[in-house]
Amino acid sequence: MAATLLSPARGGTPLTGRAARAVAELGERAVLCDLYDEAGAPIYHDLAGTTPHEVRELLTALRRLPGAVLDLAAGSGRLTFPFLGLGRDVTALELSTHMIGLLRGRLATTPPSVRERCTPVRADMSDFALGRRFGAVVLGTTSISLLPPDARPGLYRCVREHLAPGGRFLLTTVEVDAVTDGTDETEIIATGRDGRGYRMIEQWSAGDTTRTVTMVPVEPPADGPVTVATTTIGVLPASQVIAELEAAGYAVRSLTPVPGGGRHHDVLLEAEALR
């Protein structure tokens, strides 16, 4: 069983190693879901709100860029709310109905002066038309890696069509360092905003173009189903993203390392569409 469990995320990547064993230990109580679907979205939301990762770097860049902000793959608003905190108008674009529902719920609890500056939009970040332009288009949380290669040209085209003159495309991507200890998986304990702990198990072998992350509760309930969220995303080195941006008619104006530990380090790219 442990060798044949399939993640429901993006093509059914097999779960192996620690992830498979953790699910097998739960037996029939384990309910696998995608991290971004109805069952997984609350787990993503619980964890996403606990880290300031890349927020400072993005806010620093945005302070130099006037105008409204388009937050792509906004999720439940991890970056949307800090952008609103700058006093900007923010359009939050998200494909998942479950994620955008969480975002709308959070907005409903904010003061009208904040809520009125945010426009949630359900759309695909590789194919959208909003009829306006923005001083900055942001794609954070290394979410560009969620798009397959044949969808990324659509992203670059849509961003170009929505950037105001002098605007910038800000995006982060993950660099994965070579594995030096002979293993192809890591595990950390992550704590959500509600205090719940999760075993965050990542499967990735050096050279692979995808990595799979599985979230298993540290303390599952004694009875009943146990939700296990998993997702498989691409690994896109900055050099590859820069080459794609340049081929799509952008000039990359800066590359800023985003502090972080482990075998991952993210970078923030700032690109300008050449006209």
Rank of each mutant, 00 (worst) to 15 (best):
P259Q: 10
E272L: 15
G40C: 01
L47E: 05
P8G: 14
L146W: 10
A247V: 11
T119C: 05
R263L: 15
T16S: 15
G182I: 11
P165V: 11
G140A: 14
E219D: 08
L6I: 14
G261V: 12
A41D: 14
L79S: 08
R275N: 06
A3V: 09
H265R: 15
Q203V: 04
L32Y: 05
V174L: 14
V179R: 05
A73R: 08
R104T: 02
C118P: 07
P148I: 09
Q240E: 14
A151V: 12
G195Y: 00
Y250Q: 01
A178C: 14
P8D: 10
V218K: 05
E38G: 10
A41E: 13
E25T: 01
P153R: 09
E94F: 04
R152L: 02
F128K: 06
L147I: 10
A74K: 02
G85C: 10
F169M: 07
P14R: 04
R78L: 05
D223V: 00
A136V: 09
E185M: 06
L155E: 03
D46N: 08
W204R: 11
P153N: 12
G260E: 15
A151D: 08
G262K: 08
T16Q: 04
S254G: 11
G77Y: 00
E28Y: 07
Q203I: 08
L274E: 13
T141A: 15
G87S: 08
D124Y: 07
A271P: 10
G224F: 09
E94M: 02
F134N: 07
Y250M: 03
C158V: 12
V235R: 15
P165D: 03
I242C: 11
T97C: 14
P8L: 11
A251V: 00
D127H: 14
P52H: 04
V228A: 12
T119Q: 11
R117N: 02
R193S: 13
I188K: 04
A22Q: 13
D208C: 09
G105Y: 10
P52A: 09
V218N: 03
V31A: 06
I189S: 12
T13N: 03
P112G: 06
A108F: 15
V176C: 07
R106V: 02
G75Y: 02
F81R: 04
L107A: 02
G105A: 07
A24Y: 00
R157Y: 04
S96M: 00
V138H: 10
G11L: 05
R132A: 01
P149L: 14
G167E: 06
T180F: 09
R199T: 05
A19T: 05
G140Y: 02
L163K: 14
R132Q: 08
L255H: 08
